[in-house]
């Protein structure tokens, strides 16, 4: 875990927006290939943290180090395409650099948006739009894929399918994934590491560790125990269990 090997390392980062301290004392790093999810209440600085990582938000104090040549694929929370801007999905994939048709088709297929190339961006449904954003983000073969509440506005099956898609993309590209999500049950099932944020990092670690942390329970209550237990029940073989979780199996049954 030396700082030079991590894709991105934040040390003692603080961010002020309009005189308000949004983030403080944030220490955080992301390693190659891991899926890290940031959870936290509204206004806890989740989106700001992602913007610091991509370099769109400056810091008041602290340092942000990225490995040289880091390629980032970014799926923003919202992308407003002005109605005056004509833009086909295929043309959108060509931003900022033109790409061959074959590559574009492959990315669209990978993101589950295979048939959408000729459509206007403005005519897409919410789910289609998110898949197209994902397709564009993975085009550059990123080392780090960053998603800001990617399933906002999707229904339950749609969002579950989207997260499965992200796991597939990670498996195919071997990229790290950093995302913000509100859907705690999915987060717990899909992440290698969870960061609970509320202006600072309240707690961080493996999902089961975070879910049992008092700081996490203070923010989210214990309501997610059931979903978490389900996760553990299904995935128990692949993970170390160095904590004692008395409720897990009962809750799953």
């Amino acid at each position: 875990m030396s700082p030079t090997k991590s894709l991105v390392t934040l040390s003692h980062v603080a961010v002020r927006l309009g005189g308000r301290q949004v983030l403080h004392d944030v220490d955080f790093q992301i390693e190659r290939g891991e899926i890290v999810t940031v959870v936290g209440p509204n206004g806890s600085g989740k989106s700001t943290l992602l913007r610091v990582v991509i370099g769109a938000q400056g810091t008041a104090t602290g340092t942000v180090a990225r490995v040289p040549g880091l390629r980032i694929g970014y799926v923003p929370q919202k992308l407003h395409v002005d109605p005056t801007l004509p833009l086909t999905v295929r043309r959108f994939l060509d931003l900022p650099a033109r790409i061959p048709d074959a590559l574009a088709r492959e990315a669209l297929d990978q993101a589950g948006a295979g048939a959408l190339g000729g459509q206007q961006m403005a005519d897409l449904s919410g789910g289609q739009f998110q898949r197209v954003l994902l397709a564009r983000a993975i085009l550059s073969r990123p080392d780090l894929l960053i998603l800001d509440e990617p399933t906002q506005g999707l229904d339950q099956p749609g969002s579950a399918a989207f997260y499965r898609r992200i796991a597939e993309v990670r498996a195919e590209l071997g990229c790290a994934v950093l995302m913000v999500s509100h859907e705690l049950h999915v987060v717990m099932a899909a992440s290698d590491r969870v960061i609970c944020l509320n202006g600072h990092v309240c707690c961080a670690g493996a999902p089961e560790h975070v879910a049992s942390a008092p700081e996490y329970r203070a923010l989210f209550g214990t309501g997610t125990q059931g979903a978490l237990a389900l996760y553990r029940h299904e995935h128990a073989h692949g993970h170390d269990h160095d904590h004692d979780h008395p409720h897990s199996h009962e809750a799953a049954e």
Binding site: R51, I54, G55, A56, I72, G73, Y74, P76, L79, H80, V81, L85, L87, F92, D94, L95, P96, A97, R98, S140, I146
Partner: peptide, 19 residues
């Protein structure tokens, strides 16, 4: 052209792409 278009669409998207 391409950089202008990307920045017009979304400033964050442009920043993430190194623009």
């Amino acid at each position: 052209w391409s950089a202008l278009l990307t920045a017009t669409l979304s400033e964050d998207l442009a920043t993430a792409a190194g623009i």
